[in-house]
Design a protein around this nucleic acid. Structure first.
Lengths: 218, 218
DNA sequence: TTAGTTTTTTGAACGCGTTCAATAAATGCT
DNA sequence: AGCATTTATTGAACGCGTTCAAAAAACTAA
């Protein structure tokens, strides 16, 4: 594992074939598959390591009574900072996360933990009504930033940094606006979209007509 | 090309290796690379074909004075419907779109065209202030739905259909809420995030205060 | 017709991720 | 000790996407 990570860091993704990693570790190619199920497996472990580093990186900045906006920036910046040396892994990371396989539950757990700290440590505290769900929403936003970062071809991923800088105040502002009932219900609608709780019980196409009726009624 | 698409439709993605496609077309393997730069190239053309089919599919439903919500649903549903036979291509499609390579500009053009029709043909018309930018915003939303669809493992991608059904009213509602200045500025902030027009000249964090001031002033 | 040039088409090879039957080494049991 | 069984390690192979120099065919000009 250590050899694989070194290999990744030094030689890069494309150059770090299974053969190269195995050779650098002094074992046969096929022996690598005795320890790892696949190459994706190694990438998954790398991502987990990097998320732990992100957690460590941003732990200092949080819990100091910052603005929510500042905390959002701290977490996101720690993310791109820890991932920066492995930017070429971006698409592979993304595929891993989106496909929902491997041990990405652990990754999600770490990410959620960070966002809970970011929300809980923010002063002033976000509106009470959304305080509980805000971390999950921020996780969603962060995944979006991650997607943008993964394919960011600008030098040193400048565009991703700019995105973070501009996105943080928007999200923080949105959180504040959630005090207004209209915005608040929007927030809840968005969150309810991603959870599979109400999945798989409607059958007919009555939804079309009902949608028409509803929009006419309102 | 026709053989390749047939192959994709009949045998599926994984089974349709370059060798199989070439054999089915009655040519040598290397000859396929005389016509296509890579396998990704074929996938790109397939996606373009499917977007054209989506355009054709939803052309009937639009331009009939539907609600914006209905139009959103029509376009999104036409999307998943046309893509359904090629669901296993999802990750490949996604990588193609996100990496911004190949002829995906043409794909984006078609998508934008559909959203312009969806917005322009909606009755009542969306708020004047956002009418011009709404298509681009909807394109953004659609890409998000596409991402979810690509990795949707539920039978017949039910979850994606549910997502569309629930998402459409939320987005339509958001569009209506854009009459409120606070929500409207949120909308503009989000849109300004994705365009690289204001990229690489801001240094200070004045954007925070300006955003707050704007929401207070309005 | 013939020679030269461009366009099509091919076979063979490369490195990749992955699999598998086989051997070698370590371990447990009596 | 010796044998049996589990664990570690290997070499060889498979199919994949891709490349490339060279052969075949088609075309052009004298």
């Amino acid at each position: 594992m250590a050899t694989a990570l070194d290999c990744f860091a030094i030689e890069g993704y494309r150059a770090s074939s299974m053969r190269v990693i195995a050779a650098n570790a002094g074992v046969a190619l096929s022996h690598a598959y005795y320890y790892f199920e696949s190459k994706e497996d190694i990438v998954a472990q790398l991502l987990l390591n990097l998320r732990n580093e992100q957690l460590r990186l941003c732990q200092d900045g949080l819990d100091e009574g910052n603005t929510l906006e500042t905390n959002i920036r701290i977490v996101l910046e720690a993310g791109v900072q820890s991932l920066a040396p492995y930017h070429e892994f971006g698409p592979a990371f993304l595929k891993l996360l989106l496909s929902g396989e491997h041990a990405n539950e652990e990754v999600t757990k770490i990410e959620l933990m960070m966002w809970e700290q970011a929300v809980g440590g923010a002063r002033p505290l976000p509106p009470l009504g959304i305080r509980r769900d805000l971390p999950r929403f921020l996780l969603l936003v962060a995944r979006q930033v991650f997607t943008a970062w993964a394919f960011d071809q600008s030098p040193e991923q400048r565009r991703s940094h700019t995105l973070i800088k501009n996105l943080a105040p928007v999200v923080a502002k949105f959180a504040v606006l959630c005090r207004l009932p209209v915005v608040r219900s929007l927030f809840e609608d968005i969150l309810s979209l991603i959870d599979p709780k109400t999945a798989g019980k409607m059958e007919t196409d009555h939804s079309v007509s009902s949608a028409l009726k509803r929009s006419k009624a309102s």
